[in-house]
Design a protein around this nucleic acid. Structure first.
Lengths: 125, 125
DNA sequence: CGTCTATGTTGACGCCTGTCGATACAGGTG
DNA sequence: CACCTGTATCGACAGGCGTCAACATAGACG
């Protein structure tokens, strides 16, 4: 059930990342941690969403208008649907500027997910 | 964010885990790349699978018997089902030793997925 | 060989999700 | 103001997926 609007996967605290969970290799995740982390992976678990996310993440200026990235082989409503999902998962943010809507990657997300996938030794500090 | 201590990238081991894609932040993935990468993310996009994967990844010796990790709140067939999915996605390998079956993490997977989530790699001198 | 434990497979069921067309909304332009 | 473009929402549909109980298979052990 997706009753949650936007998941607080990470503290919107600028660069300071508040990862939901330790690296997967460090200790077994408990149910709650797994629930949270799985939402992130799930959001990227669709090819269309992954392409949209990658298109935004790699776009110059760190943001992209929908019109710039909507050429992924599905209809416009479907693109909008996926962008909404990515937003609900906390991976993207959107901002309307005039006629167009610009999406950008929530910066801490990449760090958080990357942290999950690191080997147990993390160069903290 | 250099990958100084990262594992050997990907072995030519058939279709387990392809050297699929550049970092998501580097270039927009094409359809084929997204298809491949999404399969990995999707496999970890379920809480039960994520717990199983984490349990294996964090288990001593780098491997775990099913009996050691099957306490995730679902029935035994469901555990087996998810382990199969993880295996099909190339994230785990299994080996039967006597009565028990041991699962271990395909090591290149963590590197490959981590690589996807890195910031655009700077041409380190 | 019979039986027990450990694990995988099958079949069924219901929810979730990706997709589309139609439509609504926002904002620019004339 | 009317109209056009860009984007989001709605409603519907099909297929995928997670789950379980029942059963099948593999190996150990008497």
């Amino acid at each position: 059930m997706s009753n949650a609007k936007v998941l607080p996967l990470l503290e919107p605290d600028g660069q300071s990342v508040a990862p939901c969970c330790p690296p997967l290799t460090e200790r077994p995740l408990n149910a709650e941690e797994a629930e949270t982390a799985a939402r992130m992976f799930k959001a990227l678990g669709d090819p269309v969403r992954l392409r949209l996310f990658s298109a935004v993440a790699s776009h110059e200026g760190g943001e992209a208008c929908v019109c710039d990235i909507s050429d992924v082989g599905v209809s416009q409503p479907t693109v909008s649907h996926h962008l909404k999902k990515l937003k609900e998962a906390g991976l993207l943010t959107s901002e309307r500027r005039g006629t167009w809507v610009y999406y950008r990657v929530e910066p801490s997300v990449l760090a958080a997910m990357g942290h999950l996938l690191t080997k147990a030794s993390s160069p903290a500090a």
